[in-house]
Amino acid sequence: MADGEEKTPRGYHDLGGLPAGPVDRSEHVLEPWEKRVDVLCGILVDRKRRLMTIDERRDAIEGLGEDAYNSMKYYELWMAAALKLVLDKGILTRDEIDGRVDEIRARLGLEAGP
């Protein structure tokens, strides 16, 4: 099907076949926080918990908006999506998260968050 004749508008995550530049083959060693996000997200979808599915997480990432999709780091997108899902599903509340984030920032001697 030619471009412009597609029945469903293409989502900004749906990159297959689009023109793009050369592949940047730089290697990146994951930072500790990136590993922690990966492992936490893995636990949320594992067969013991099944608190969410991998598809739900991808859908939530795509729901963050095109600007976020194109500007946030990979594991920031993962964590933002997982956070949205634990809130939407009522597993945790916004107040619980905000309170704990403030507490952790204080514990680490960091400035108050955004």
Binding site: W33, K73, Y75, L108
Partner: peptide
């Protein structure tokens, strides 16, 4: 801690809770 962004802190919060 110097390199921790907001989502790194959110991960800790969600994990602890």
């Amino acid at each position: 801690e110097d390199s921790l962004g907001q989502y790194a802190i959110v991960e800790m919060a969600v994990r602890e809770l």
